[in-house]
């Protein structure tokens, strides 16, 4: 693959998924796209880039984007955001939404489902305190492949051991051969949707809580600001956003403000809140 071809591939990935691949990530492209080449019977990365430039195969373009996205996740990843949900956010919204008894949660980069299922299990555990409540958990991702895995709810032994308390494994999973499948009642709590964050997501409606963790790090500053502004636009006035441990809105957007008492938790900045916009964010 020549430098020009590598640059063309980087431009394609940025346009399609927002993924800002730095010039030193050539090794990543080579390691991740070799399986795509094999699958589509393409003999080299140069050939793959030519095919993408020719725009002959939507399936190839999609597979290329999917192969380059990072899907690492695990149940209750980083623990803190889930402690926050249980100890701070759930009590807050149980009180604030007592009249409507409705709570809407969005996991914006759900990957193989561990994050939305972790929240669903916490909500199931809290169910005795929430009679008559209607909960929506919308979980989206850019990869249809990981969404299919998420919907099926099968996890291997390593996946169910990373962060998942054993009591929840026993309670909500069934052993199927050497795999573990999450219970149908937990799967039914999550509504999976294909979604590319660079595109308009107003159609998802308004959310009380948004988890958008460890995805914005792959975007350039302009796109990051744009996505955060559009997330703020679909958050309830008292909505909450949780970002990854290494992510911040500081210096990126003033649409959101950090909760000084809770690391990684953001709310809408009332002072700078823009009117609700429905335009697709440009970069």
């Amino acid at each position: 693959m020549t430098e020009a071809e590598f640059d063309a591939l980087r431009a394609f990935l940025k346009t399609r998924s927002g993924l800002a691949l730095s010039p030193d990530k050539r090794y990543l492209v080579e390691s991740r796209l070799s399986s795509v080449c094999t699958r589509f019977k393409i003999d080299s990365l140069s050939h793959l880039v030519r095919e993408i430039r020719a725009g002959r195969s939507v399936a190839l373009e999609k597979a290329t984007v999917e192969a380059m996205t990072t899907n690492e996740t695990f149940f209750f990843r980083d623990k803190g955001p889930f402690d926050l949900f249980q100890d701070v956010l759930l009590p807050k919204y149980l009180k604030e939404r007592a009249s409507t008894r409705r709570l809407r949660i969005w996991c914006a980069a759900a990957s193989t489902g561990q994050e939305p299922y972790s929240l669903a299990m916490l909500l199931k555990e809290a169910a005795p305190r929430m009679p008559g409540w209607h909960i929506d958990i919308v979980a989206s991702d850019i990869s249809t492949e990981v969404l299919e895995k998420a919907k099926a709810g099968f996890y291997n032994q390593f996946e169910v051991q990373r962060g998942l308390p054993i009591r929840l494994l026993v309670k909500y999973f069934t052993q199927v051969g050497d795999q573990w499948q999450i219970a149908p009642e937990i799967r039914a709590m999550v509504d999976y949707r294909y979604l590319n964050l660079i595109e308009d997501f107003n159609r998802l409606g308004q959310f009380d809580i948004v988890y958008c963790r460890n995805v914005l790090i792959y975007f350039d500053p302009n796109l990051k600001a744009d996505v955060l502004r559009r997330i703020a636009n679909i958050m309830a006035p008292d909505g909450s956003l949780l970002l990854g441990a290494s992510e911040t809105v500081l210096g990126v957007t003033d649409a959101l403000t950090l909760d000084p008492a809770h690391r990684g938790l953001y709310s809408k900045n009332a002072a700078s809140a823009a009117p609700k916009m429905f335009a697709v964010g440009g970069r």
């Binding site: 623990k79 051991q161 962060g163």
Partner: peptide
């Protein structure tokens, strides 16, 4: 009376996650 349970084989991440939990 066990607090947690790890199925072998395991790795550092699993053990660290259990300890953190």
């Amino acid at each position: 009376g066990a607090d947690e349970y790890i199925m072998k084989p395991f790795d550092r991440d699993i053990l660290a996650a259990k300890f953190q939990e």
